[in-house]
Design a protein around this nucleic acid. Structure first.
Lengths: 338, 338
DNA sequence: AATATATTCTAAAACGTTTTAGATGTCAAA
DNA sequence: TTTGACATCTAAAACGTTTTAGAATATATT
């Protein structure tokens, strides 16, 4: 079927190793033989068998990405799509495979171990980090290369790329307080995730910084879906003393919140201000345009991949821990309180 | 480093093949030996070497997905994310690797051939089909397993999962004409893509069916981005005789069009009607809610993957060519013309 | 002319698995 | 007590590659 070194060897009347070394351009093969072998190989359409080569080299030339939550795996999040594009761009360009699979919570760690032991990947990319992340602890213990997108709450001596969510949300609070708001609400994703935890921390820090008091009822913790954003916002808006500004901790939640405001007959940006996080493509298109924190999703993907590839190849890494500050983009969903 | 059959063989005092066959549960190994071997293997944490096994079996147990357009690979399209989720769900559950990479136009076909010859995948998933698709022709010629998401314009004797875009857009036209619209505009993606071509065909068919005439200026062909949707819509709205309804051929374009309408001071759903295609999560959240055609993106991904997996395993396939009709979801972006 | 030195090649082993063909021993039947 | 059948195992080969160690030949040096 496929052309092998043996086929070429037979054709050129040399041994298999000679052919192998000729193709690899070793010095101990005469130029004449080398050129001949290469010509014949090309003519026969030779491509090395992937697995034979990998068995021999003991390198997988592959990066693993195991998505958490196999049971209901549905990423419609444009942010993740862009992150993934960045990762694929880099791994592809480096001739590395990106092997994507999914695992559910129960056997997640087993899946990681199997990947390691069967030597099918040289490293992992971790996404959606938890404040205390078992995957990270496992890989670190096994000294297996990985880069995570996101940190843990503490004990972060490993390679990662992350946003500065804390700082970012503080900017948002500054912006809102600057406009004159003093009653702020917040809609958060589950606090189990570091990302959410830090963003909430930023919210708290921001309040404190401006001498504002925090009431429990002003923080609604829910999940990722925009539907939840709507519900959470309704809850905030229906409070005795509703906040005049709602800090949603991602854009989908924010868009849900905008919808809720509309349902209550409020004009967003005037009667109530709403902010998001991520600046997904639709933040700009929302009505009104969403004030949010922009993140270079694609770029972040490339950084994660580059970092991991260097780690695998034992190349020096200029920055093994990267924290990117998001940039505030002010649109029409925020304004002075009435 | 990793535990091998040899390690186990040494430990139990049997030969390597015996261990191999014991673990695989062959009949010619005594129950006693079998159990012992299995116990030892488990205790030692044995996991078969992926590449050795694949070299021997001559199967890759992997599915390839080569994304077109490596040069500017940025998928923020939630639809694609969901499709991918469906694919990953099925391949993962079947213990198959999903190997994702990217290739640019020039060497796309070479990348496919290399994947085939190096035997790194057992089959391909093709996305974003062209009316005349070189990838499909290549794979078909080489009798290599694949399933495409989308058809070609003709000559479709291969396995695919596709939408009925033609039929879908006809429903949209029916809906608009039913509301009283007679001047319809259309914003399309490049016609090179089968998807776009069929959707436009549906638009034309719809007009003809209702005895409406088509003017060239009412069709704007642009690209995928929502920004383009805005620009295209501005062009339509600024015509001498602007259409009262704009059929955008995907949701992102539609949302761009809504923005354009707002810019021109028009109330969408009253002054101008706008429709989309796909029903991405934000269609519902848009303001006003977008009338569009719903597609089960995740489900489609699972169908594509299931079909390919069966093909690879030579299992019977109940339906090797699937065309799903989208369902019209009427929201507030469409209404009677003024 | 003998020795050292390059140059160019190959045999053998290795990576870790599975398959094929056959060896060895046991037991029952003739 | 031989034969055949069965149960249990192993040696050898295979998958296709690369590496290691060394062979063979030609060339240069003394």
């Amino acid at each position: 079927m496929a052309v092998t070194l043996k086929n070429i060897a037979d054709k050129v009347g040399k041994s298999v190793p000679t052919v192998s070394r000729a193709l690899a351009g070793f010095e101990d093969i005469s130029p004449k033989t080398r050129d001949y072998v290469q010509a014949v190989a090309k003519e026969m359409g030779y491509v090395p068998n992937n697995f034979a080569r990998k068995l021999q080299s003991q390198k997988a030339d592959a990066v693993g990405l195991i998505l958490p939550g196999a049971e209901n795996l549905r990423f419609s999040d444009p942010f993740f799509g862009l992150l993934l594009s960045g990762i694929i761009e880099k791994t592809s360009a480096a001739g590395m495979d990106l092997s994507i699979s999914a695992a559910n919570e129960e056997d997640e760690l087993d899946v990681y171990m199997e990947h390691i032991k069967s030597q099918r990947v040289d490293g992992f990319i971790i996404v959606r980090t938890h404040r205390k992340d078992k995957r990270i602890e496992l890989l670190r213990k096994n000294k297996f290369p990985f880069v995570s997108f996101g940190r843990m709450e503490e004990d972060n001596n490993f390679n990662f790329v992350d946003e500065d969510g804390n700082w970012g949300i503080e900017q948002v609070v500054d912006h809102l307080v600057g406009l004159g708001h003093t009653k702020l609400g917040c809609i958060a994703e589950p606090l189990l995730f570091t990302k959410s935890f830090f963003r909430v921390q930023g919210f708290m820090n921001g309040l404190k910084k401006h001498g504002l008091k925090f009431a429990d009822e002003n923080l609604v913790v829910t999940n990722f879906r925009q539907r939840s954003g709507r519900e959470a916002a309704l809850r905030l808006l229906d409070l005795q003393e509703p906040p005049t500004a709602i800090v949603a901790l991602n854009d989908l939640l924010a868009i849900g919140a905008i919808q809720a405001a509309h349902e209550r007959g409020l004009t967003v940006g005037r009667d109530v201000s709403i902010t998001g996080f991520d600046d997904i493509v639709l933040a700009e298109m929302a009505n009104p345009g969403l004030t949010t924190l922009h993140q270079p999703a694609h770029k972040m993907g490339t950084l994660v991949a580059e970092n991991l590839l260097k780690q695998i190849k034992n190349e020096p890494i200029d920055q093994s821990q990267i924290v990117l500050k998001p940039t505030l983009v002010v649109r029409d969903s925020t304004g002075k309180p009435v």
